[in-house]
Design a protein around this nucleic acid. Structure first.
Lengths: 246, 246
DNA sequence: ACGCTCTGCTTATGGTATACACAGTTCTGT
DNA sequence: ACAGAACTGTGTATACCATAAGCAGAGCGT
C-alpha cells in the first residue's frame, strides 16, 4: 500500500464503488476478465510471471490497454487477492463448536493456499479489506463466538492463525517448488538439506543441532503435509482451550 | 532457490568454501564490502531499492563489477540474510529454563527484524543454512534441550516460533511503514482501517465483525508492539508447557 | 450533427538482471 | 626473463519491467 489515498482508491475498486462511464466506445474487456487472466498466469507460472505485458498478451490486447481498467499493477494484485478468496467459506458447513469451527476454517484457508501457491509469495502490506477476504474474517470471528474469548483475543487469535497457515503453506510449497524445479521427488530437498546439516554439524560446534540431525529428523520420509499441519494446529487450539479454561 | 546446483553454490558461498584465485589483478572490492553496502541500502530504502546498480554506485564501481564477486543477485540476498544474523544470539546470556530461554530467543529474533525491517519482505525460499542463521537454529534447539520435547517437536516448534516472530514483525512494521509514507501517526492507519470496517459492517451482513468493531477493538490506541508480541508469545509458550505436562 | 469523453493504441522514459566480449594486470611455468 | 593463462573491471547489448503522455477513432448526450 503506497499511501492513504491509494488505499482509498483500492478500497473503492474492490467494492465496485467506482461509477463506470456511459459515453465513448464500448470497452472490449472487463476488470473481471483481466483479473482472471492474471490469476491464471500466477497459477501456472508464479506471481513473478504476472506482468502487465503477459496478462495483456493473454487477452490479446496491448499492455497499456489494461490501465484503462486497473489504475496500477498493485491494484491488480489486490483484486487477484480478493478474487481467489471468493466466495468465502461456506458458513452452512461450519461446525458448531468453536474449536471444530476454527479447525475447519484453518483447513479451508490452507486449501486456498494449495489452490493458488503464489499466495505465499504475495506481498501483504495491510490487513484484508476486500469483500471476500472480509467474509473470511467474518467466518473466523463467527467461529469464535461461543468461545468466551474477548474481541481483542479474537483479533489476536485470527492473526496468529492466519500467520500459522501461511507459514505452514510456505513450508509445504517450498518443498514442492524445490522438487518441481530440480525434477526430483519432494523428499529430495529434505535430503539435500539434511546432507547440508550433516556437513555443518561435523565440526562439533553445534551439539544441539547435531543431536537433532542424528535423531534422523531430516531423514525420516515426510509424514505428509496434512499431518504436519494438523500437528501444529492442534497445538495452537490446545493453547486456546487452556487459555479459555483459566 | 532456483535449483539444486544453485543451492549448492550458495551453500559454498555462505560458508566461504570457494577457493579464491591467486593470479590476476588484485580485487578492488570484497564480497563483505558488497554485502555491507547492500545491507545499508536495504536498511535505508527497503529491499526493493537493492539493485545491482545502486549497490555498485554506492561502492563507486560499475554494475557488472559486482558479478566478479557474487554469482547473482539472489546470492547477494542470501549473503545479506546471513550477514545480519551475525554473530548469532549470545548463548552465555541465554536463561537456563527452556521457557525463559525460548522467550529470550524470540525477543532477540524480533529485535533483528526491528533492526532490519526489510527482513519481513525477504523472499524466504528454503530453511536456513548460512553459518549465522544456523547458529540461531542451534540456540533455539539448545534452549529446548531440557524441555523433554522430542527432536521432531523441537523442529516443529522452531518453525512455529519463527513464523510467529515474522508475522508479528510484519504486523508491527506495516503500521510503521503506513505511517511513514502517509506522514501520520502510527495509530492513524489503524483508525483508517477501523473506518473501512465500519463502512463494511454497515450493511448488516457481517454481524460477528460488527460486534468486534463496535467493541472498539480498532479504536483503542495500540497497546504497544512489545505488549502485542508478549501476548501471543506467552500464549504459545503456555501451549508448549501444556503439551509437555500431558 | 456537433462535441465531449472514452477507447485502445503507439511511443517514450527510466528502471531491472545479466550475458558477452575486451583491454589491461598479474601470477605461474618454463 | 618471458609467454601464456587467469583474472580484473568495464562497455555494450539483450530482454525484460511499470507506466506517463499523446493520438486517432468510436459512440453517447445534447
Amino acid at each position: 500500500m503506497a499511501d492513504k489515498s491509494s488505499a482509498q482508491r483500492t478500497f473503492e475498486l474492490l467494492w465496485g464503488l467506482r461509477e463506470q462511464p456511459t459515453r465513448g466506445p464500448k470497452p472490449s474487456l472487463s476488470v473481471e476478465q483481466i483479473v482472471q487472466a492474471a490469476i491464471e498466469v500466477a497459477d501456472a507460472h508464479g506471481l513473478d510471471a504476472v506482468s502487465m505485458r503477459r496478462v495483456a498478451e493473454k487477452l490479446g490486447v496491448t499492455t497499456m490497454s489494461l490501465y484503462r481498467y486497473v489504475p496500477s499493477k498493485n491494484d491488480l494484485l489486490e483484486l487477484m487477492l480478493d478474487t481467489i478468496a471468493a466466495p468465502g467459506p461456506d458458513l452452512s458447513k461450519m461446525p458448531e463448536h468453536w474449536r471444530a469451527a476454527l479447525h475447519w476454517w484453518a483447513r479451508q484457508n490452507l486449501e486456498a493456499f494449495r489452490r493458488h501457491p503464489w499466495l505465499v509469495q504475495f506481498p501483504f502490506s495491510h490487513p484484508p479489506f476486500g469483500p471476500n477476504n472480509i467474509r473470511w474474517m467474518e467466518a473466523a470471528l463467527r467461529a469464535m463466538e461461543g468461545s468466551g474469548l474477548t474481541p481483542e483475543d479474537m483479533i489476536w487469535l485470527l492473526i496468529l492463525l492466519s500467520g500459522y497457515v501461511r507459514t505452514e503453506a510456505a513450508q509445504e510449497l517450498a518443498l514442492i517448488e524445490g522438487a518441481r524445479v530440480t525434477g526430483v521427488e519432494p523428499q529430495e530437498w529434505g535430503r539435500v538439506y539434511g546432507e547440508m546439516l550433516r556437513k555443518i554439524v561435523a565440526d562439533g560446534d553445534h551439539p544441539a543441532l547435531a543431536r537433532v540431525v542424528s535423531a534422523g529428523v531430516f531423514d525420516a520420509p515426510d509424514q505428509g503435509p496434512d499431518e504436519d499441519f494438523e500437528y501444529g494446529l492442534t497445538f495452537i487450539l490446545n493453547g486456546v482451550e487452556a487459555m479459555i479454561n483459566n
